[in-house]
Amino acid sequence: MNWSIIIESTLEAMVTKNAVVFALAAIGLNIHYGYTGLLNFGQAGFMAAGAYGTGIAITQWGWTIGPAALFGIVLSVLLAFFLGLPTLRLRADYLAIVTIAAAEIIRRIVKSTQYSEVTGGSGGLNGIGRGFYDNNPIDSGLDLGIVSFSERELWFMVVGWGVVVLCMVLTYLLVRSPWGRVLKAIREDEDAVRSLGKNVTWYKMQSLILGGMFGALGGIMLTLEQQSVQPDQFFTPTTFFAFTALILGGAGRVFGPVVGSMLFWGIIQFTDVSLRQAIANDHIPTWLMDGVQAGQVRFIIAGGLLAALMIFRQQGLFGNKREVALDDH
């Protein structure tokens, strides 16, 4: 067992691409679910809106990154309107059904051959935002001994975590305000909020839009990091990874989704590399599992760990136990 490789890749997974992308997606879900009680099971759709909006604007229309990213965000706002208008008046579970379907519709549309001239079909779009790395002001990598980063990685981390911190600050400012109070009250009982003169449907729409915009930012960061976008990155499990990160960190807490995302990808990477190491060093016999299967088994083990966490620490890492105890009433 080469522990330094295990630790290095775990640490790396906790701070690079996926951790950033899913932190943003989970911050959005935190607005939806953690604060407003909206069950959005289609966060992948909002991520796709951001990613494809940016990708299409850059590759098809030759826009620069800034306006293209803005276009991706505008698309996610339109998506929120489109989903919210018919469903936000209805009971919470309808939104869950509609959003999960909408995200799948989006993925299948961008994947279809019909629009492949614009969306790239199942191959997706490539060569997006070369300007992102061209403008990298960092000219040397960073070696921290146990883990090292290239200048490209560093540049992405600076921008990515910068966006994450910005979104966290926004979330913090909003949830401590009277606006945040209305959202939390809607989560508890929307009729009570209505009876106090608040336009509940409109607040739910605002929440859906804001959380969707954070999700779109996740999609945009994903696109910029890999300089490409593929439709199957926005399959349904993407939403549930973000949800898992949120629950793991603690819903309804500003730091919850961010730390949750780091831990989630840390756990996934740790189990993956550990298993591969164990197999390579004959600690696990090949009749039980081979290196290819490790990729699947990591999710099984990670799932088991998360289930255990939910049993022993329902509120997640940052959650408030006193609040969770109130759910039984």
């Binding site: 109070r181 939390k184 009250a185 989560r187 508890e188 909020v193 608040k198 309804g252 609040e323």
Partner: peptide
């Protein structure tokens, strides 16, 4: 509103 404090309930 269970998970809001009494004073937050009032201010709402």
């Amino acid at each position: 509103l269970s998970k809001l404090s009494v004073i937050e309930n009032m201010k709402l």
